[in-house]
Design a protein around this nucleic acid. Structure first.
Lengths: 227, 227
DNA sequence: ACCTGAACACCGTTCAAGT
DNA sequence: ACCTGAACACCGTTCAAGT
């Protein structure tokens, strides 16, 4: 924290502001991210920041755009399912690295270039594979709902490793063995078992969804729906 | 706003604080929800609130608990799929009514009674239907990821009705017709078409997921996975 | 028992300067 | 051109009172 105060003597750029904001949010969370702390982190006075961004909202815009830029685009030289697997796993990894990001990803009213490029590439992946616009909308909506929702759940898990996790769960389990029998059984009998890893639910879920999309599009390349 | 200042002369209760906070967050958003504005809304001085809740974090805890309490539990007298349809549609409706809630629903480290009751009922729904603990974990994870993620996407749509939506999309479409061909095609050719309603993606997605779960559990009631 | 005023250490942001 | 100090209207929260 003190190691980077006032270090970089190059003139400040918007990029340095945004990058510093992402790093600081990763460290302390987005609700604790203030202009003043950000200024301190990048070695500048608070008011200097306003010469490179309009306000805090513009910083958030830039942060979300940077997160999108870190996500691998679906490769264009493989089938759509393989391409979406690559893009989905990359997205999960990026959202796990920036746990504050998921609620913000779809909330930007002025999307940056990386956001537009990302959506264009994903849409292009489906369209090139022969999906109708309707099938594309279905596929994109369910996949991203799953990715964002999973990231939301994953963001609340204790940092990394099992000790804290087990403590919390055991404590909860004690209080609920009487009134919440299924919750008690599930916690002690499954979640607290040695081999359990919530992350595995990702692969099950993603495969189920891609299977379902594949099945739907196989039935004639055009998805029936109540118009 | 001015109509409810200082009205209720009954002694303040924790319930009135929480309920007032939920209503105010529905109106102005959770980032604009401050203790001072909340006090004003329920007709009391800011410091009075601290006699009924420990701090703002406790208010958030109570708000999330109230949101859970509004979600219909899965009925116990029908098959698991019908029960999950009821619970899922109710959850979507409640999360749409409280657009600030989705990112907070799974983030509580001290869950209230309504939260525990809800999770116990959903787990019980699967277990009673014969799901293994592992299959239950798979099913619960994918369904809730979809519900939370969909709510996140739905929360960013313009309030209600099409006019503003079309304006924004047209504006975006103009700027991206050159660099983002798939996005331009998708926006003008599908999203901006008269009949399009993003809400319809919910039914497609939920059905696909429930189909997948059904198919998985039919193959022997026990789900294979890398342990 | 229940409520509150004054105060403290913070916020984001504006404005008028400094080099 | 790039940076900044002082100030304003806010925050959450503590503490010592008021009825």
């Amino acid at each position: 924290m003190s190691a980077r105060h006032g270090r970089d003597r190059r003139p400040l750029t918007t990029e340095r502001v945004i990058h510093g904001a992402v790093s600081l949010a990763d460290e302390i969370g987005i609700s604790a991210l203030t202009i003043r702390k950000l200024a301190d982190a990048i070695g500048v006075k608070p008011m200097t920041i306003y010469h490179h961004v309009a306000n805090k909202e513009a910083i958030i815009d830039g942060m979300v755009n940077q997160v999108f830029s870190e996500i691998d685009l679906p490769p264009t030289d493989v089938d759509w399912r393989s391409a979406m697997l690559v893009r989905s796993h990359s997205m999960r990894q990026v959202l796990a690295k920036h746990p504050w990001a998921s609620p913000l990803m779809e909330s930007r009213t002025t999307p940056g270039a990386a956001i537009l490029r990302h959506h264009d590439a994903v849409l292009g992946c489906f369209r090139t594979a022969g999906f109708s616009l309707e099938a594309t909308a279905h596929a994109y909506a369910i996949i991203d709902a799953f990715l964002y929702g999973f990231a939301l759940q994953e963001a609340t898990l204790p940092a990394t490793g099992g000790p804290t996790m087990a403590e919390i769960a055991t404590q909860i389990a004690r209080q609920m063995s009487d009134g919440y029998p299924h919750l008690a059984e599930f916690t002690t009998g499954h979640v607290l078992q040695p081999g359990y890893d919530f992350g595995n639910e990702f692969h099950f879920g993603l495969d189920l969804i891609l299977d379902g999309i594949e099945r739907t599009t196989e039935l004639g390349r055009s998805v029936a729906s109540t118009a």
